[in-house]
Write a protein that binds this DNA or RNA. Structure first.
Lengths: 117, 117
DNA sequence: TTGACATATGTCGATATCGGCATATGATGT
DNA sequence: ACATCATATGCCGATATCGACATATGTCAA
């Protein structure tokens, strides 16, 4: 055993900036591979491979359209990420960050007092 | 040039399941490394290394406490993730997924109709 | 069938990642 | 100084990742 998590889940799929860009573009509606290539200034194989990863985690759906393949966003695949991170949302809401600042202050003083004096 | 994004941002830091577990535990309050080791059934170097990554992206803060080091969650570092994924939230809200189902249905029929008959 | 277009896949090289183990660093108490 | 506890780092091996390039597969039009 030498490595653990791979690209096989939404978190990893989305950790790649280019893949986020792809999703952001797809959020605007169905796009062909070529349209993504043009819109993102990436090479075609690059886009196809990223799309594969996104497909494998269910973040996008494809349908055939003549010689093109139209990719479409599948939002629900991102829900686990949202759910997870949502639990932390309160930690940066104003009241809480203010409270945290106070607590940090107190801890700082504790450290200073304990260390010297 | 051969590789691109690394562990240097919150998205990547959080893509690792063990690191999410660490954050989840820290959400319950300050913990020492040993407490994390015990609580997560990981080896001590494993935990220290993951904490390093989390530190580097600002997801946790440390303070010294005698021979221990107490780690604390720093929620705001996760805000970029939340902000990004929030834009997709509507895609899995009931009304929208229902609408999507209908659209998929229509596309499916289009494909069937166009491909044969 | 041939050729152009659209997309997917394979290979390669450089590098990053993760776990495991050993070891270094640092603080505490005696 | 020494032993012990607590944590961080270094090195290794296995593997995954990403970009670049070439090439395979598939579709359409003439």
């Amino acid at each position: 055993m030498a490595r653990a998590a791979t690209t096989a889940d939404a978190f990893n799929a989305v950790a790649e900036p280019q893949r986020r860009r792809i999703l952001d573009l797809l959020a605007g509606g169905e796009r062909s591979v070529t349209e993504l290539v043009d819109g993102l200034a990436l090479t075609q194989p690059q886009v196809s491979k990223h799309l594969r990863v996104l497909r494998e985690v269910g973040a996008v759906h494809v349908r055939d359209d003549g010689r093109r393949r139209l990719y479409r966003l599948n939002g629900p695949a991102l829900k686990p990420i949202h759910d997870w991170v949502k639990a932390y949302e309160q930690t940066w809401e104003d009241r809480f960050t203010a409270m945290d600042a106070v607590l940090d202050q107190l801890r700082q003083q504790e450290d200073d007092d304990g260390g010297n004096g």
